[in-house]
Design a protein around this nucleic acid. Structure first.
Length: 315
DNA sequence: ATGCCTACCTGGGAGC
DNA sequence: TGCTCCCAGGTAGGCA
């Protein structure tokens, strides 16, 4: 493959800038694609310890364009429903071109994401969350990122899952902080944390050390179930900019129980969903299904406007 | 070790 | 219509 970088900022973590990124991936063949949370990397077939690391940031995406779609001009229709494909060309930041004419495009509206050609290094236990699984190689920049919750090594019943539950319980923090802590597990962001906690009926500010093993397991199972159902429908898209590798919007926003649902009734008990400030962002919960723990300070509620309580997205 | 804050960006929607 | 304000899917880094 060969690459070109359209926005220098997208290779800002590369010491030699875009020129170095482009040079290091030139002529390489991809042998594997691996993901941990918003990080993913393409391992190269030649020079076995080289890879291209991609961090998606807040708005990054990789979109695959087959050779036929490219030679036939820009794809004008949605493959499944014939509708228009969202125009994300203005946010195209880099492109990987393959020998057969296909392309992998890095599109990133907010430019928090980046590309980095980097070396894979052995990590004896796979890094945090890697217990109980074979030793993989990882980009050095990702060694502090734990395995994704959907990683087979963290499935229920594995040693990795048991170790994760134990680690969460020894942390002196709150359960949502733990879910978002990339050194414990990855793949869980603000949306899936809130949704999982609602399913499990746990307030985001429960102290992890006060949770039983069973409660931690219930939370992890709930979050993983949310992630799986979301994957089935293509992820969560609030607007046409968020699409999958084929350019399709996800539909999981239709299934959100609490996230972005302030002012609406809880699907389970009918109580009104509330939005609160937590960790400089928003947390949503059902006040009845997820009652405030006795030991926690009450959160400042956020003024809800317009019934739906959503000031963003199209829902 | 943990938590809190800011910074990095672009763009959409609400409200005036 | 156009301005200003607020908000957003994530993470790194600095400081208490």
């Amino acid at each position: 493959m060969h690459g070109d970088v359209l926005l220098e900022r997208s290779t800002r973590r590369q010491a030699g800038g875009s020129a170095e990124t482009v040079e290091r991936l030139a002529g390489q063949r991809v042998s594997a694609a691996v993901r941990r949370g918003k990080y993913l990397w393409l391992a190269f077939a030649e020079g076995r310890d080289e890879s291209l690391l991609v961090h998606l940031g807040m708005s990054g995406q990789l979109r695959f364009q087959g050779a036929d779609a490219i030679s036939g001009g820009p794809a004008a229709t949605h493959p499944a429903d014939g509708g228009p494909v969202p125009d994300t060309e203005s946010h195209l930041r880099a492109r990987l071109r393959f020998d057969d004419g296909s392309e992998l495009r890095f599109v990133d509206q907010r430019t928090f994401g980046y590309l980095l050609a980097t070396r894979l290094v052995p990590t004896p236990d796979g890094g945090p969350g890697g217990l109980g699984s074979p030793a993989p190689v990882l980009p050095a920049e990702v060694r502090h990122i734990a395995r994704d919750l959907l990683d087979p090594a963290l499935e229920p019943g594995t040693a990795g899952r048991a170790a994760l539950v134990a680690r969460i319980r020894t942390r002196r923090t709150t359960v949502k902080r733990a879910l978002l802590d990339q050194s414990l597990l990855s793949g869980v962001g603000n949306i899936y944390a809130d949704e999982g906690l609602w399913r499990a009926g746990v307030h985001f500010e429960r102290a992890t050390e006060a949770l039983t093993r069973r409660e931690v397991a219930r939370v992890l199972d709930a979050v993983a179930a949310v992630m799986r159902s979301s994957l089935e429908v293509g992820g969560t898209s609030f607007d046409a900019l968020y699409v999958n590798v084929n350019g399709r919007s996800g539909y999981f926003d239709r299934s959100l129980a609490v996230y972005g649902q302030a002012g609406r009734p809880c699907q389970r008990c009918g109580a009104i969903i509330v939005r609160e400030h937590f960790m400089s962002r928003s947390s949503y919960r059902c006040p009845r299904c997820q009652p405030v723990p006795r030991s926690s300070p009450r959160r400042r509620p956020v003024q809800v406007t317009g019934g739906a309580g959503r000031a963003f997205g199209t829902g």
